[in-house]
């Protein structure tokens, strides 16, 4: 259930492109044709699915304050979180370079059509954003981190697929010459973004009255305790 919720949330509500506006450069530049868009989209899913769990491990066992306690008691006070940027980005760059080598070897045509944008996956902010969100939202387990990586990748994939399909059709419309190509793509993306804002309402709309005023303090406390205990149990499980 938790997995399903995270999945839908990352694909639709927290969509990388339309909700947080990450990964725009490659999104706009490589969306002329559906086939190239699919290629890049798959590459992004792949890279996200690998880097998010990998960076989750790095974060848990190296970077977080107190993460080094598996080394021994005397390391418990170390806080290496100032290194998170560089560690995350190094992992991402390594994975991207690997993907580049693999794609070049097995599909030279895809390699050529992706051009400069394959290396640019490394600075595709959606990828680093994925890892940083994983860190700041405190994703609880490796499985969830993997799920988060894949589902935000799928969200990005769907977005680029949609805009590529629109761009293929829009060729038959009479757009003012100066707006043709990039200009109209910017504006369409803006409109799609406005549409996606309504998903944000789904996220916040429901829980406004989560605790009816009729409940007494004691009941609320008990419930909180239960929740806390659940969370504790979950955390101990992951630690073990």
């Amino acid at each position: 259930m938790e997995h399903l919720e995270l999945f839908f949330k990352s694909v639709f509500i927290d969509n990388m492109v339309f909700a947080t506006f990450l990964g725009m450069c490659s999104y706009l530049a490589v969306s002329k044709k559906v086939t190239t868009a699919v290629g890049l989209g798959v590459a992004v899913i792949f890279v996200l699915a690998i880097t998010v769990p990998l960076n989750w491990l790095l974060d848990q066992y190296l970077l977080q304050p107190g993460a080094l306690k598996w080394l021994g008691k005397e390391y418990i006070d170390y806080d290496l979180s100032f290194l998170s940027f560089i560690m995350f980005i190094a992992t991402i760059a390594t994975m991207v370079q690997l993907v580049e080598i693999i794609v070049e070897k097995f599909s030279p045509s895809l390699y050529n059509s992706l051009g400069i944008f394959l290396p640019l996956i490394a600075v595709n902010c959606a990828i680093l954003g994925g890892s940083l969100f994983m860190q700041s939202r405190e994703i609880a387990s490796l499985g969830l981190a993997f799920n988060y990586g894949i589902s935000s990748g799928i969200g990005w994939f769907l977005a680029i697929l949609a805009i590529a399909a629109i761009r293929e059709k829009i060729r038959y419309s009479s757009v003012p010459p100066a707006l043709r190509g990039l200009g109209i793509t910017f504006i369409i993306t803006g409109l799609m973004g406005i549409g996606f804002l309504s998903f944000g309402g789904m996220l916040t709309g429901g829980d406004e009255e989560e605790k009816p005023a009729t409940k007494t303090e004691a009941v609320i406390k008990k419930e909180d305790l239960k929740e806390d205990k659940k969370e504790i149990a979950k955390n101990t499980k992951t630690i073990q």
């Binding site: 107190g66 806390d228 630690i239």
Partner: peptide
């Protein structure tokens, strides 16, 4: 006192 550290402690029970 680092509030974040204390929150992590609370989570660990």
């Amino acid at each position: 006192i680092d509030v974040k550290k204390q929150q992590t402690r609370a989570k660990e029970g």
